[in-house]
Write a protein that binds this DNA or RNA. Structure first.
Lengths: 129, 129
DNA sequence: GTTTTTGCTCTATAAAATATATAACAAATG
DNA sequence: CATTTGTTATATATTTTATAGAGCAAAAAC
């Protein structure tokens, strides 16, 4: 997993890390049962603090994307990540909503935003920017 | 404009306010040249601080969605809001990207996410939840 | 079986973001 | 002229973010 952190971003670095791990899972580069680096090793690798990596891991654990096994290590959800429940879908929609609204204010058409999503899906699956 | 602020949300209340004003613009309820309440009146109305409303206004001004006329008042961009530049579109896509990635991890198909966006567009235009 | 590694916990510190409160200024508005 | 306006300044408090270092106890590696 290649992780790129932008220190001047308004997105906290623990979140950037979590989001890029999520992309790794979405892309299939991180598969169920795969182990992630220890908080210390990852932190040293990325030039950040142990606690910051730990925070990213717990963020992902809350979403049940990974399992943290105390005093052992961290692995991608071994039984696979179940399909979104109606509630999870609803929560995701609520987070996308303000961005779609902003798109509308910027006079983007429904089709343009749909295309944007389609392109994002491809870019994420390909691992391209 | 009916504004509903959730005090227990992880989204800061100044941002919630700004986002709901954006929806008002997207919906056409707030038209170019329309004036917004004064920071004091709005704050009193919403039960929040003057500076918090001010922060929401400046957030919207930075996006050029509104104009703040010092010592006079605040109006929706009078000449209309121009269509998104390529750069603005790119920035919007970057903000949507982590949400699409999360959708993919939750095994939502491209079509399901496209449908989600289509529904959001309709809900925003109708002013429904 | 000892050493190393592991996530966890605790304490501490610092900066930034969020939110409120109060006051005063100077220009625009009524 | 009095009121309203956004602006600015000071002050305070809480939460979030990020780092630092130390120690614990169990798992893993040797």
């Amino acid at each position: 997993m290649f992780i790129e952190i932008q220190t001047n971003s308004s997105v906290p670095i623990y979140l950037q890390l979590a989001q890029q791990l999520i992309e790794g899972i979405a892309r299939g580069e991180l598969k169920p049962g795969d182990s992630l680096p220890s908080v210390r090793a990852f932190a040293a690798d990325l030039g950040m603090n142990m606690h910051t990596v730990n925070k990213a891991y717990h963020y992902l654990e809350e979403k049940e994307f990974i399992q943290i096994v105390a005093k052992s290590g961290v692995i991608i959800q071994p039984n696979g990540i179940p399909k979104a429940t109606a509630e999870e879908k609803q929560l995701l929609a609520e987070r996308i909503r303000p961005l779609v609204a902003e798109g509308l204010v910027l006079k983007l058409s429904e089709e343009e935003m749909v295309d944007m999503v389609r392109e994002l899906v491809q870019h994420i699956k390909e691992g391209t920017s």
